[in-house]
Design a protein around this nucleic acid. Structure first.
Lengths: 210, 210
DNA sequence: ATAAAATGACTGACTGATCGTTTTTTATTT
DNA sequence: AAATAAAAAACGATCAGTCAGTCATTTTAT
């Protein structure tokens, strides 16, 4: 009985999602009106509500970014080699995502999502789960490296993972604020830090801080 | 002619600012209504508008956090010793600010400010200027260390500064989302990274990444 | 094959509620 | 009494969301 094909229906859905993404990227979730999304999508109010129950429904649909997680997963598929190399590969994936001009809207919406995560439980779950996967990945890499004697024992794997993730979160912020932020050199500094995790000949006692 | 003393007037102002801070920390700038701030402050609508011209006025007043900048400035006052020690001191300041339970509201408002900075020019200026000072401080420390041969030449001072700042931005996010985020161990990892900047005996050629 | 009936896709004017702000009224102080 | 702080009431604008109705297509009946 459907009057339009599933293809068309999914296309309409994407049409609305893209309009919402652009609007949210520009003005944030709460400063964007449904009228803005409606106008940008080229549809009508009623039509939008045929595809999404509410504005919050749209927000939740955009707060979760599955594409990036899959990209991260692909990068781990080749992760049976040197753990340090694995970390570099991961950095490369995020660096590329950070540079892609087409991803600017997603990065901006992501930042709005970070703020929204403070007060919206569903959004927070999406955000936290979004960083849980790369975190577990880094922890696994570092622990393997430490077990094999390739990575120094000093800092905990969990702490290193959170630090690396924090770096890219901060990079997204700084880049999106439009300062002259040179992704290449900053990423190079991260690569340098990762190389610094390698076991050195003279890794006897490293100072521990309180 | 004076109706109430300047002390009282400033006290009322702070009373409103504190109410606004608490509200903004809970629900963000745009989901907080003036009615919420009015109720929380214990005053009336009209009274609030005697002290602040508009809601945006309140937002801008809270987006800028001078207290932290001053704390950073104090930490640099003792910055004539070892550059690496200087970086550790800076980390200590931010770690303490990150741990302070009384600062949770400010951290949350700060995150909302990061998102707001994407669309509000004034807020963005506040935020960017807020990180410009510690950035310049780190750059100066690193450059001095590199000049004196205490810090490796590999990564640029600017990149290191942005990375360290990014780390704490990410830490604020992860901690505020309420995951079990252990500040102490994560900060220890940062200290470890900083120690890794030190010149080693075998710092001949470090690999450079594209 | 063709017309009538039915249904899905979509429209846009409209709703009540809430928004930030202004104006009016009351209370307090000098 | 003169002035001003504070409270109360009310403003127009805007919000997310709705719903009676239109249009186009498909199904059914002849």
């Amino acid at each position: 009985m459907p009057k339009i094909s599933d293809k068309q229906r999914e296309s309409r859905r994407q049409q609305i999602l893209e309009a919402a993404l652009a609007c949210f990227a520009e003005d944030g979730f709460h400063q964007t009106g449904m009228a803005d999304i409606v106008k940008r999508s080229g549809l009508s109010h009623g039509a939008v509500y045929l595809y999404f129950q509410s504005k919050d429904d749209l927000i939740e649909a955009l707060a979760d970014d599955r594409h990036r997680r899959e990209a991260v997963l692909n990068s781990v598929a080749q992760g049976s080699g040197d753990p340090i190399e694995g970390l570099h590969a991961l950095v490369r994936v995020y660096a590329q995502w950070l540079t892609d001009p087409a991803g600017e809207a997603r990065r901006r919406v992501g930042i709005h999502g970070w703020a929204e995560a403070l007060r919206n439980r569903r959004v927070r779950s999406s955000v936290v789960e979004g960083i849980d996967m790369p975190r577990a990945l880094i922890v696994a890499l570092v622990e393997r490296g430490q077990h094999d004697g390739l990575i120094r024992q000093g800092p905990g794997a969990e702490a290193i993972a959170r630090m690396l993730i924090a770096i890219f979160q901060g990079f997204v912020l700084q880049k999106s604020w439009g300062e002259d932020f040179d992704v290449a050199t900053c990423v190079a500094a991260v690569d340098d830090v990762i190389d610094g995790l390698r076991t050195t000949k003279s890794d006897v006692k490293r100072r521990t801080r309180t």
